[in-house]
């Protein structure tokens, strides 16, 4: 579904990604893990059109999407939950969700999609008239995910959805991620919480200093000594 081939990217003179290859198949949850500064968020920016590639290509459903501006990438059926949610704080919960349905093909169906999102996140229905800035951390994350669902995406990119949440809520977030897959949305999950991530995803890529250092099925990765030592502290 999503194919990243030989992608390199740089900020000014500093090269951050080196020949990254990554594939996401329909119906999968694919995880991208790595420590701070390993290039995870940069790769995400490269996919959604915020950062031009210095070489390589990104294809979605067989069409090249690198070089497209961010809104055009969303139109192709990729939506993103940016790091920290990036809500519209002074707009209501409902308005935040409606903005998620901005692409023209989604706008006409926004009422039905809204009902579906309210089924997944009942708390958002209760809070729909509140301003987004009045929500708790967990509710904000739900709103960010709900907003990403409003465009009716085929692929959803999640950037550190568990960041800054209490342990109980982290478990809830990963439960929701599995729920997304069950609802037919393919997921590319970017995380630092390696343990939960490897237990949730189907396959994973480990990014280190801008290169893919390991890849494979999550159940296999969980068994390798390297991952257990470096990321799980076992």
């Amino acid at each position: 579904m999503l194919q990243i081939v030989d992608v390199s990217a740089r900020y000014g003179k500093t090269q951050v990604l080196w020949d990254v290859d990554l594939v996401v198949n329909q119906g999968e949850i694919v995880a991208l893990v790595g420590s701070n500064g390993s290039g995870k968020t940069t790769l995400l920016k490269a996919i959604c059109g915020l950062l031009p590639l210095s070489s390589g290509r990104v294809e979605f459903l067989g069409r090249r999407i690198d070089g497209l501006p961010p809104h055009a990438v969303v139109d192709q059926g990729i939506s993103q939950v940016p790091e920290g949610g990036r809500l519209f704080p002074d707009m209501s919960v409902r308005e935040n969700l409606e903005m998620g349905a901005y692409p023209s093909q989604a706008w006409g169906r926004r009422k039905e999609t809204l009902e579906k999102v309210f089924q997944v996140f009942p708390i958002l229905k209760e809070r729909q008239r509140q301003l987004a800035k009045t929500l708790s951390g967990g509710e904000r994350q739900m709103l960010a995910m709900g907003r990403a669902l409003m465009s009716g995406p085929r692929l959803c990119l999640l950037d550190e959805p568990s960041y800054g949440l209490a342990p109980l809520l982290i478990a809830e977030v990963f439960r929701i991620v599995r729920g997304l897959r069950d609802a037919g949305v393919t997921v590319l999950l970017i995380e630092q919480n390696v343990k939960h991530t490897l237990e949730t995803a189907d396959r994973a890529y480990v990014l280190e200093s801008g290169r893919v250092s390991l890849e494979g099925k999550c159940c296999d990765l969980l068994q390798t000594d390297y991952v257990r030592k470096a990321y799980l502290g076992l």
Partner: peptide, 24 residues
């Protein structure tokens, strides 16, 4: 309208607005 909401979203966060598919 849709454009008005989009405009307000841009005021609150341009990057976030682009991520939701608004041609900023």
């Amino acid at each position: 309208s849709r454009v008005g909401l989009a405009l307000q979203a841009i005021g609150e966060g341009e990057d976030a607005a682009a991520h939701t598919g608004i041609n900023v």
